[in-house]
Write a protein that binds this DNA or RNA. Structure first.
Lengths: 144, 144
DNA sequence: ACAATTCATATTGAATAAGTCGGAATTAGG
DNA sequence: CCTAATTCCGACTTATTCAATATGAATTGT
């Protein structure tokens, strides 16, 4: 029941791009330094985000990445699902999951469905914009 | 974010013991047959449940296992946590989890906490007795 | 031209998942 | 007491996934 580093890093990566956005591309090197994550690993992760159109890339010196949309447009769910796959606790309740011949008599599936709904209702109602706001509040605390 | 077979099988195993309880021990062979799970693998799983006192074992011929408490006393959460460990989506929000030096500045932790609470509130409010009831309803549907 | 960047693919090492295997210990029934 | 059914125990295996590293090509601002 764990979220892998890939999903967690993706979230921090996207948050970093949102928080440090100045209208100019942000290099992975900077993100890696701030977030203390291997730059090489971030490359793999942002590649997914790039192909999915969540960010756009600018190559060459002074290049980097930028969000393609406003932070409020990215739910945590969309970011996590892109990197982690379906968040369902078992494959038989996934959106495009495997079908199971035991399904009709299976009682545990109700539990998995409820867990699935509970998780989704959390991640689909939090956006990057919320997280940026939290970040600002944190920052305020330390400035005072 | 998946529950492993170990946790899923443990749940079905406990449910089987609850549903087919007649006051006499139930052998793993029978459970394995009904649930279509490897008997050898079930041995490993029930060993955990046994050591935790969730079931008690009777050895020898006509031996097997029995629940030690009423089905209503077992929450899904307790069964899953025994086999899966803490259900938290990241270790830093586990009950006895690792501490993280990034913690104070970390914003994503709020998300993991909310997911954790959402999952716990599902699994800690469903008991084996509920599942037995669901099973009965299912059975009724097919008898009619 | 150079250096900073992204892009693409392959490889690695460790851990975990999901069992299987072989046999020892216990005990009810004949 | 013997036998067979059962639990109990630990080692082993096989495949997959995780979490990166490594290598180098392609692009482009200065």
């Amino acid at each position: 029941m764990k979220v892998s580093t890939k999903g967690r890093y993706a979230l921090r990566l996207m948050l970093d791009l949102a928080v440090y956005n100045t209208g100019r591309p942000i290099s992975l090197k900077d993100v890696a330094k701030r977030q203390q994550i291997s730059e090489k690993y971030l490359e793999q992760i942002i590649s997914l985000l790039n192909k999915a159109g969540f960010v756009r890339s600018i190559r060459g010196p002074q290049g980097g990445y930028m969000l393609t949309k406003a932070p409020g447009e990215y739910t945590v769910g969309r970011i996590l699902r892109l990197t982690e796959g379906d968040l369902a606790p078992v494959s038989c309740v996934e959106k495009d999951g495997m079908e199971c011949e035991r399904r009709q008599g299976c009682v545990t599936v109700r539990i998995w469905e409820q867990i699935n709904e509970a998780v989704n209702s959390v991640v689909d109602h939090i956006t990057l914009a919320d997280m940026v706001e939290w970040q600002m509040e944190k920052a305020d605390q330390y400035v005072i």
